[in-house]
Design a protein around this nucleic acid. Sequence first.
DNA 1: CAATTAATTGATCATTTGCCCAACTAAGAT
DNA 2: ATCTTAGTTGGGCAAATGATCAATTAATTG
Lengths: 317, 317
Amino acid sequence: MAKNTSSSEGRIEDAARAGWLYYVAQNTQDEIAKKMGVSRQSAQRLVSLAMTEGLVKIRLDHPVARCMDLARAMKKKYGLETCEVTLTDPTSDDPALGVAQVAAAEMERVLIRKEPVIMALGTGREIRAAVDDIPNMHCPQHRIVSLVGSLAPDGSANDNDPLNKIGDVIHAPRHPLSVPVIASTTEERRVIGSQKPIRRNFELAQKADVAFVGIGELNDSPPLLTDGFINWEELKELQALGAVGEIVGWSFDAQGKLVDCRINDRVSSVELTTLSSVPAIGVAKGANKLVAIKAALAGKWLSGLITDEATAEMLLR
Amino acid sequence: MAKNTSSSEGRIEDAARAGWLYYVAQNTQDEIAKKMGVSRQSAQRLVSLAMTEGLVKIRLDHPVARCMDLARAMKKKYGLETCEVTLTDPTSDDPALGVAQVAAAEMERVLIRKEPVIMALGTGREIRAAVDDIPNMHCPQHRIVSLVGSLAPDGSANDNDPLNKIGDVIHAPRHPLSVPVIASTTEERRVIGSQKPIRRNFELAQKADVAFVGIGELNDSPPLLTDGFINWEELKELQALGAVGEIVGWSFDAQGKLVDCRINDRVSSVELTTLSSVPAIGVAKGANKLVAIKAALAGKWLSGLITDEATAEMLLR
DNA sequence: CAATTAATTGATCATTTGCCCAACTAAGAT
DNA sequence: ATCTTAGTTGGGCAAATGATCAATTAATTG
């Protein structure tokens, strides 16, 4: 057996080998250790590495009837084009668990197409986790466009941007939006919106074949606040105006109507109204996001929803 | 939590739930037991059931460089359209381990297409195992056609036929070939070939967009013999004539030339020569199949090959 | 070349998992 | 009603696994 003393490249390869032997060939870690000429512990580390590096993807292929029933009911009640409901782990507080895997499968289904498609991506931990779950593909024919600025308030690029990650794994050209999520003033927002490359990005987004967006809740510690895009006073102002949720930065009230305020005037993301022609799939679950999801549905901002059992039940009540 | 006291339907659903909690949500079996209100052992059984029922599919997503190198070399040396090389487990004697998963992924890639395709299937444990690994899909637009008879020598239908299985899981119309693999006489073979429905099946197979075939070796206990299609004398005759391998029942020699003999005159499968217009993907690995694979490649019967590391290395020597 | 630091290894142990077996339960047969 | 039988349950145990930690090795710097 070839030796791979070190080199981080070879390490991943060894992890792939070990992971394969473990998950596909059902070897025990002792056997893997023997075959690969390493200690039992090293074998275990390699297997574990294969998992944490996302080399092994596990999917569960069963239409759990309950979930399908819920999905059907959701489609009917909210007039959704598509709806997917995954199982709920009642003790986990991971906001993306389950929905991320389903969203990833859905994205894969889109990306596997031969004809070029434009896929738009919004914000949220769920979207990021979904992207992390997409296997390596080769689809240079597609274009991935961001619906939302990728710059932090201090002007630094967000290296956690799902756009970069997906571009890497599927080898497709990406179209980032290199502006802050929320401009510091209305005037800056206007200037941003008038720039040529930004305009072109917006136009591309409008032509997107599908968009995947997270749904943010506007409770007392929304990502918008913790990421420093708005301050405490602005959050309170939004809440006072009835805002309960946001999609790509645009805040709306319980009826789904965009709130008319200073903050929404500074949002530099693609406008939700111009996205009406794009099928947008919302990805969100959890009791704390319930009102936000409800509002997004009421506002007809979504044509599809990926959520979980418990959330679907609450939404149907 | 809803109770599913028994009913085999609900049991599978419970298995799916348990499998999801285990593999996706990373729960321990104790936690699953608590959440589902069963004992730890029952939870273990459900998880294990989810696995044996094929509800969970594990795939390893990493281009192990060595395999890719081998695949490239294979394509070059044998003029193959496509070649996929999977890892080798040197201690496993499962003839399908690894190649089945890769073949399944390849089939899935074909079946996921929107436009209707015709997929032809040959024989072999590898093909059967690959089909078992395909997830549930909904593709009524495609047609699956068998290249080879599905009747045992005693006239009974082979319920292990990959055609039926794949038809079930992907919900596509199937076109079985309800004849024995090898007719008892040349005359019977002629009669079979003249029947309308059989002729139509043959024509469909000729129009197939892709064919997946196993490669049989003609050592001293080939499937053809153990399944009772030929007897010991006939096997010896084939071997005397230089036959080293077979594809869908047609035996060929080391140069890949069909051997001219009484047995080949009775094979009722679709003729290999008429398949020349169809891209045929061979699925086979292992030292004992080496000469057969070499012969099949020499005879240019294949446009693609799915094999494993060790076999590829031997083929390249 | 020595010395400091970072990374990797293998021994050890607690937890988790797979499996066997005896006890129990439910359904059907006598 | 009793017996039989098939199937399910949970206890117990051995194997497998994941994690910690001290020891060793490799790498880097002065």
